[in-house]
Design a protein around this nucleic acid. Sequence first.
DNA 1: GACAAAAAAGAACGATCGTTCTATTCTTGC
DNA 2: GCAAGAATAGAACGATCGTTCTTTTTTGTC
Lengths: 206, 206
Amino acid sequence: MSKREATHDLILDRGLAMASTLGLEGLSIAGVAKEAGLSKSGLFAHFDSKEDLQLQVLRRAVDRFIEIVVAPSLRRPRGEPRVRALFDNWLGWDESSAVPGGCLFVAAAAELDDRPGPARDYLVASQRDWMEALATAARIAIEEGHFHPELDNEQFAYDLYSIILAFHHFHRLLRHPQARQRAQLAFEALIQQSRGPSPKAASPAS
Amino acid sequence: MSKREATHDLILDRGLAMASTLGLEGLSIAGVAKEAGLSKSGLFAHFDSKEDLQLQVLRRAVDRFIEIVVAPSLRRPRGEPRVRALFDNWLGWDESSAVPGGCLFVAAAAELDDRPGPARDYLVASQRDWMEALATAARIAIEEGHFHPELDNEQFAYDLYSIILAFHHFHRLLRHPQARQRAQLAFEALIQQSRGPSPKAASPAS
DNA sequence: GACAAAAAAGAACGATCGTTCTATTCTTGC
DNA sequence: GCAAGAATAGAACGATCGTTCTTTTTTGTC
């Protein structure tokens, strides 16, 4: 690895850590430069613009997420065990040293949801990929006979995502001591519900 | 209402709308001033600092949330009807004209979770109040015989919150057309589960 | 170890930020 | 309608922002 690549890597890692606590917009060239032991212009030689830095930090976050969450889960047996691994590793991601300020995607989602541009486009695309990966994991669990055949696997992905988002909210903002336990109870209830007969027939009352 | 109060009110309403799209940190004195038809210094006469403006905008958001979500729900019958009203109005809040950029609390949560200060303190306190209100609504539904007597009402509050957070994520970021329907299906499943025998006994497998 | 190329530093730019000051305009009570 | 006071405008501050330029240092190669 050339010196350029090594420095580039270091910048992105420090930038990712900073962005997780300060947000993508909170990233300042001077701040990242200082953290990486560079001057502003020294850092700037690696990027076309601040927008470019933000985008590359987002890409780095996706890379790390795949390393920490996705890849290990794919090495687990198909079906429910893999779904459980996805959930467990996903919870762990939020406390990973790669993102000391908590999941960057949650922070970026709030920042970018009304700001069009390449960063938003990339975030949306990667989130859709992730949702499809979750739905696929559920579909495999159906094929394996672990989940009920009529389970709505897209709804499963939505429900799983919602548990994690609430965990992030209670853990990071409210510092709720039982956040993880709440998430795990919700997950077990979801698994239970996914095994049983289709609960989709619930008729809206009132 | 004095002129001062009227201007103050206008500033906070425009500030709230701007903060919902740009975030609390994205609020600039110059930007809010322009939106309110004032000069920078004219606006500044109403606030001690930018931090003060942010805090007061947050307070305004809580006031509006109570008007739009909480108060109408409390006028509904105790028990499940009130729980349903809370959920419906909460979904509506995210599309209210008061917050054109989506729920400010979600945006503020991501921004403030690592930034200590009065704004964070206030957000955390108001979120805890809201969680207790949700748990109380569930407890009342138990008392009314609508929900199962052994339902964990704090877990119910967690589950309800998670549905809304996912709705916000899918609706605001991914612009998912079925976001609302997904949220409603999840809500019906939660209600169903809250009526039935306690599902807490799910034993972690694997 | 000299030399060419690559990488980083340093200085400076215009713009915008939050904030403070003084001057001006508008409201309000008589 | 006039004076007193409140409300706002305007100008200016130091700081920081992203960005560009030139100069210096470092790296890798024969």
